[in-house]
Write a protein that binds this DNA or RNA. Structure first.
Length: 861
RNA sequence: GCCCCAGUAGCCCAAUGGCAGAGGCACCAGACUUAAAAUCUGUUCAGUGUCGGUUCGAGUCCGACCUGGGGUACCA
């Protein structure tokens, strides 16, 4: 930090450095030449404010919630940070937004809970430790200290006594405790399955962590590996995760809800059991398929199983076995991206088997292909080429028949190569013929049900959450494997299972198995159940487990008997305003919603959604692009703070655009913000009336401006239009300046009222400037908890308004009228207007629309 | 391909279906100054991406399209 340049006796002298600083930043100003050289009480000096106020605020403890029921409670939460180095511009925006929300809630009189903590387990710490031959904790806790220091400078109005770190044993003890509850409820289980594997990080990834086929941490292309891994049964909650989104509608951004809806991917259809006929060495075999179009059963001309399944191997006849094995090898070599490309030619092999269509007894050849996914539905499909594009592509590649069973009015798919998926009337479909699509679907399900060969079902795209990781720096999975007892959860009184301490540097290097596995005296334990020799599970949990319940820990952060106190949590939750980036639209938000529902079912909380309102702030860009090292367009937050001050940076972030929009740092002007702050701050020197003066005697015009602002701000804040609130403050500052310089003067009580209103509202955005100004206005510190003046309705009434007279929607005249003019009076005035009669030019009048007192619209006949 | 979001002045952005402009940046001019900076005051600038519809009246509502951004993608 550069420190105040305009020290006593320097400003306004020939001190070149001081002047140069003035020129560059444009806000360390001397307000009048006569004061040049004086101790600079009229110099806006942000560095001095930043040096002075934090200690005062700490003493006031204004940001600790009372939790005594005297005020309505409100929980305002920012998505807690990951400690990767110091805070950056993105943090500056996100936490400015969250802090505005918290401070506004306080101004409204709520008892506000606004905590701060760190999501401090994770891969970057481990990679840093390997690189520096150190322990991940060193890097992690050093970064946390740096960030905590920066947050304090940034004047976040947080209750620091609630600070938590997910990597503290005091925290992860309870993550483990919760895991055992999930385990006992059957919601945490192990299974063998082909999983997403990152070859670089040497660990598995959840479905949600695979972005375009690549690892979301390091960008390496993900491969598949058959492994035994831990899962949370989030699929059991798919329907509720979808249903409960009704509670969030209108309070969460629509795009986030849409993303979650798509991710859960509910589709209604039917399960249909096909019998695969016995063939040479192979017995008959029932294989169910899932379809959303049971109405098209008569159009099925072949049957496909996913090539990479055991089922395919079980079905294939001896004759076709080698072809299938060769095909499977080919498929394995493809990258995930290649395999999933819809552009790619369809490939597959015949299995030598035939499936019997349960509705018409037809025999369909069974193929194995990679366009059918092993882990969606049943891993097998009935193929209806006429009405499904993928099936049609396959049919054309292998010369399989195409039979139209829905007449959509479009041309024959067999000819055009375009499948017809739309509505239509069923044809060539036995007793389904003649029905429309919905009726045929219902009838087909009925027929299958009667035969016992199928039923209506719902399928989800959502998969279970793969939570185990083969890395060190995470919460150990509290399970002990015993040859006799199986998987035994670690008893509560033995928690936490702490990480073995000695590991550092190369010992943490990814090897495909968890580094914990190498620590023998840690691994080998006695079984809590039978006392026999047993081994600890050596995987750690996905860090998203840690962050799926932290918002609950904040409420009773030091509780030693449970993860949280249920009564306290039920008092404060759900979070009233959650603030964070849209990058968590699926992962963190979906997982937290899932956890909350499980905790509800366990009777530990009495609500089913954790975050009743969500605000996604935009990104901070530079020159139209996200800041990145490779582009070299990064902006250093620390430098910006040194140059413009905390308040100017905060104000710039918020004034630039509505919170959800991106802020392009190249388009905004922190020096402009600083100029405004200095301008507002200077009002303090010109208010000459005493604190407590009776405002009623003040200048009416300025009072009206003040109270209009007071009346409008709650609505604007409620709609998160923070940028507009700042514009209104600028307006009020301008009006106050004018009143001082060329109006009733600085002694008028209205000037004090306006200045105090500005100060209290400004505190949400620029806490240092506001606190300093509050003191200059003669008040004791604590502007954050000062009360806003009550709106005086009679000041909002205007003496006269301008009514617009339109003819056919075009403005033709303006009339100055009383605000309570009646419709009839206004109509008469408008019709008497000379302008109007000139425009009407003798034409008659069809209608007159009157919206007193603002508008009249005359429609000529 | 499908699903969301956004297009208003040179730029960032305002505008309960009712006069397109609240605020800021930039630019220019004036006051102050020996001068400059700072400060104060003021001026200039678009008819709202395109086409159509609803309406007395559309930036705002509806439909289609264009452009940009985001999500998702052989999900049967």
């Amino acid at each position: 930090m550069s420190g105040p340049v305009t020290g006593a006796g320097q400003a306004g002298t020939e001190n070149d450095e001081a002047i140069a600083q003035n020129d560059r930043t444009g806000f360390k100003t001397v307000s009048t030449p006569s004061e040049a050289g004086q101790p600079d009480e009229n110099t806006y000096d942000f560095a001095a404010m930043e040096a002075r106020w934090p200690a005062v605020w700490d003493g006031l403890e204004s940001f600790k919630p009372l939790d005594d029921g005297s005020r309505e409670r409100r929980y305002v939460l920012d998505m807690f940070p990951y400690p990767s180095g110091d805070l950056h511009m993105g943090h500056a925006e996100a936490f400015a937004m969250g802090d505005v929300a918290a401070r506004w809630s306080r101004l409204q009189g709520f008892d506000v809970l606004h905590p701060i903590g760190w999501d401090s387990f994770g891969l970057p710490a481990e990679n840093a430790a390997i690189k520096r031959n150190a322990h991940p904790a060193e890097w992690t806790y050093a970064n946390i200290d740096t960030q905590a220091h920066s947050f304090k400078r940034y004047a976040i109005s947080a209750d620091w006594s609630r600070r938590i770190h997910t990597s503290d044993p005091e925290y992860y003890r309870w993550t483990q405790w919760l895991f055992t509850r999930f385990f006992n409820k059957g919601l945490a289980y192990r299974k063998n399955s082909p999983v997403n594997w990152c070859p670089k990080d040497q660990t598995v990834l959840s479905n949600e962590q695979v972005i375009n086929g690549a690892c979301d941490r390091c960008g390496t292309m993900v491969t598949k590996k058959d492994l035994n891994q831990w899962y949370f049964k989030i699929t059991d909650y798919a329907d509720r995760l979808l249903q409960d989104m009704d509670q969030l509608k209108g309070h969460w951004p629509e795009r986030v809800l849409a993303m979650q809806r798509n991710w859960i991917g509910r589709s209604e259809g039917a399960t249909v059991r096909f019998t695969i006929e016995a063939a040479d060495d192979r017995p008959a075999h029932d294989v169910p398929v899932f379809t959303t179009r049971p109405d098209t059963l008569y159009g099925a001309t072949f049957f496909v199983v996913a090539a990479d399944t055991q089922l395919a191997l079980d079905l294939v006849t001896a004759e076709h076995r080698s072809a299938l094995e060769e095909y499977r090898e080919q498929v394995k070599k493809l990258s995930e991206i290649e395999r999933q490309s819809t552009e790619r030619e369809k490939t597959g092999v015949f299995t030598g088997r035939y499936a019997v269509n349960p509705l018409n007894g037809e025999k369909l050849p069974v193929w194995a292909a990679d366009y059918v996914l092993a882990d969606y539905g049943t891993g097998a499909i009935m193929a209806v080429p006429a009405h499904d594009q993928r099936d049609l592509d396959f049919a054309r590649a292998f010369d399989l028949p195409v039979r139209t069973v829905v007449d959509t009015g479009a041309e024959d798919p067999a000819v055009t190569g375009t499948a017809t998926a739309g509505e239509g009337v069923l044809v060539n479909s036995g007793e389904l013929s003649g029905l429309d699509k919905p009726a045929a679907i219902a009838r087909a399900v009925e027929l299958l049900g009667a035969q016992g060969t199928g039923e209506g079902t719902v399928n989800f795209r959502l998969r279970d959450w793969l939570l185990s990781r083969q890395r060190y720096w995470g919460t150990p999975i509290p399970i002990i494997h015993c040859a006799t007892c199986g998987e035994v959860p670690v008893p509560d009184e033995q928690l936490p299972v702490t990480l073995p301490e000695g590991l550092h540097g190369n010992q943490l290097k990814p090897r495909g198995v968890s580094p914990l596995a190498a620590v023998e005296d840690w691994v080998n334990v006695s079984c809590p159940s039978c006392g026999g020799p047993a081994k600890r599970d050596t995987d750690t949990m996905d860090t998203f487990v840690d962050s799926s319940w932290y918002f609950l820990r904040f409420i009773t952060p030091h509780l030693e008997t449970a993860p949280f106190d249920t009564d306290a949590v039920n008092r404060w939750m759900p979070v009233g305003q959650y603030v964070g980036g849209v990058e968590h639209a699926i992962l963190h938000l979906l997982y937290s919603r899932f956890f909350t529902k499980v905790l509800f079912d366990l009777g530990l909380v009495n609500f089913t959604e954790p975050f009743s309102s969500l605000l996604n702030q935009g990104q901070v860009l530079n020159g139209g692009k996200a800041m990145s090292k490779s582009l070299g367009n990064g902006v250093d937050l620390g430098e910006q703070l040194d140059k413009f001050g905390v308040d100017a940076v905060r104000l710039t972030m918020i004034f630039a655009s509505p919170p959800e929009d991106d802020v392009d740092w190249a388009d905004v002007s922190p020096s402009g913000s600083a100029k405004f702050l200095a301008r507002a701050w200077r009002l303090g020197a010109d208010v000459t009336s005493a604190p407590g003066v009776d405002f009623a005697a003040g200048d009416r015009a300025l009072r009206a401006a003040t109270h209009r602002t007071l009346a409008d701000v709650p609505e604007l804040m409620g709609a998160s239009k923070f940028n507009v609130v700042i514009a209104r403050l600028m307006e009020l500052v301008n009006a106050t300046r004018k009143a001082i310089d060329s109006g009733p003067g600085g002694s008028d009580p209205a000037v004090r009222e306006a200045a105090e209103t500005v100060t209290v509202l400004l505190g949400m955005f620029a806490p240092y400037t506001a606190e300093d100004l509050w003191e200059r206005l003669g008040h004791t510190p604590g502007v954050a908890t000062a009360a806003l003046p009550a709106v005086e309705q009679d000041l909002l009434a205007q003496e006269s308004v301008v009514a617009v007279v339109q003819v056919q929607g075009k403005v033709r005249d303006r009339l100055t009228v009383s605000p309570d003019i009646t419709e009839d009076e206004l109509r008469a005035l408008a019709l008497a207007s000379e302008q109007v009669s000139r425009i009407l030019d003798g034409r008659g009048i069809r209608t007159v629309i009157v919206r007193a007192p603002k508008l009249v619209n005359i429609v000529p006949s």
